[in-house]
Design a protein around this nucleic acid. Structure first.
Length: 290
DNA sequence: GCGAATGTTCGCTT
DNA sequence: CAAGCGAACATTCG
């Protein structure tokens, strides 16, 4: 599912449902999805811990625990998080299950409340978990190497020009560089370039300051727009198993090769840039004149 | 059967 | 050494 707006959606749906719950048990069915530490240690360290809150950084999700340990998760291509009743039928390709419960104080004894499960499923099994102990530096997941958040004030035309302005690489590939801008993937890079009116294969070092300004404006505009249209209730999210790509009806170019440009009616084209399929309007996103 | 798919990393060749 | 490129990871879908 996930680029930044989808990861943000997952955070919004899941966080309020798991805050304050205790992890009773962790089952890892596919040890390879736990990148660090080893799966059995991952389970052992988490058992008995309580969930504090969740954050997002780029396309990463972070589940913070009361101990200040934190679970880092990257969903990659097909990873998905679902909160379900414990007796809910298990989805295919479920690789990790966190059994959670609400612990209630009753006089001198504690009593477990309703039991739910946070389940990680991932068809292609590219998604990864890391567990970092309080004070343990994250040198494993790559989250520390991320660049500016698209919605941060730091992301200006000057920032883009300073970091990308000398690169010969296609501007689209630059937008996908997580160490400069965190969270943009193949869908939203196409949408952003369409909004900015820039041809995806243009070498970054050929862009002028006006074009960097258009990009710096289009990035937060498109990302916040898609966060908005992706909004979903927890009930609907569970019904659609987190697989409902509600961004689809709002995409202007991605996946719309051969269809008319929403701005000018010209037929949208597809090229490959940096190994990724890219759709653009040949009239609205002109290449440099040769 | 083939090619692509909302992601990232690794390794080989210029 | 850096940049560029394809392959790899694993599965589904058209």
């Amino acid at each position: 599912m996930p680029e930044l707006p989808e990861v943000e959606t997952i955070k919004s749906v899941i966080e309020p449902q798991i805050q304050g719950l205790m992890i009773d048990k962790v089952s890892v069915k596919r040890p390879e999805v736990v990148a660090y530490p080893a799966a059995d240690e991952f389970c052992g360290l988490l058992t008995g811990q309580t969930i504090s809150h969740m954050t997002r950084r780029g396309k990463f999700l972070v589940i913070h625990l009361n101990s200040d340990d934190r679970i880092i998760l990257h969903l990659r291509m097909t990873g998905c998080l679902l909160l379900t009743p414990a007796d809910h039928p298990e989805e295919k390709h479920t690789h990790v299950i966190f059994k959670l419960s609400n612990v209630m104080e009753r006089g001198h004894s504690t009593e477990k409340g309703q039991s739910v499960e946070l389940r990680f499923s991932d068809t292609r099994r590219f998604g990864r978990f890391w567990l970092l102990k309080k004070d343990e530096a994250d040198t494993y997941s790559g989250i520390e190497k991320l660049g500016a958040e698209p919605l941060d004030k730091l992301l200006t035309a000057e920032y883009l020009n300073a970091h990308l302005g000398k690169r010969k690489k296609a501007v689209k590939e630059c937008l996908l560089d997580q160490s400069i801008i965190a969270g943009i993937g193949n869908i939203y890079s196409d949408e952003i370039l369409f909004t900015a009116g820039i041809y995806p294969a243009r070498p970054a070092n050929s862009l002028n300051i006006k074009e960097w300004e258009r990009l710096a404006a289009a990035i937060p505009e498109r990302i916040s727009y898609f966060i908005e249209v992706n909004k979903i209730t927890p009930e609907e999210y569970l019904e659609t198993k987190g697989q409902d790509y509600r961004n689809t009806p709002f995409l202007q170019v991605y996946g719309r090769e051969g269809k008319p440009c929403p701005k000018c009616g010209e037929m949208l084209c597809r090229i490959v840039v940096g190994g990724r399929g890219s759709v653009y309007c040949p009239a609205c996103q002109k290449d440099l004149e040769v």
